[in-house]
Amino acid sequence: MPIYSALRSLWHVFKHTFRRPITVQYPEERPRIPPRWRGRIILSRDPAGGERCVACYLCSAACPVGCIALQAAEDEHGRRYPAFFRINFSRCIFCGYCEEACPTRAIQLTPDFEMCEYDRQNLVYEKEDLLISGPGKYPDYDFYRVAGVAVGVKDKGAGERELPPVDVRSLLP
């Protein structure tokens, strides 16, 4: 009979009487959440206030559980935007692949995890629930400043006060 080991484990457990609990008392005491935490998904705007999302479907394609649904549309200048954008958070696994796939940094994950609902249907977020008024994690980034935008009569970089688009295949600065 392993008497010694039994007594030793009794003693080791007893010593914990004088330790502080490591539990975080959640609602009163908030844990510190790092900024790159993968929580609730949002759609951000560029610094000028326009929607960043160009409805390219890459996030929807990258999503492993298929919880993102959207419909592309074009405004009068030929600029694409999502007519609706829907994320079913009861399916979402917060993997962050959509954020990685997004070419315009429109879709972002935020350090917010308090998304409980009594009704499962309420976990389906529409575009107006997702779209925030700010630029999110990338305050200065504006996709069209880099990529240029073609609007009907003018090609990319052909407008006033506009630079030609960056040739991404060139190594020259």
């Binding site: 914990h16 009487t17 502080r20 609990p21 490591i22 539990t23």
Partner: peptide, 8 residues
Amino acid sequence: IARWQDRR
């Protein structure tokens, strides 16, 4: 027991 397991 919670105390001994560093819980509350």
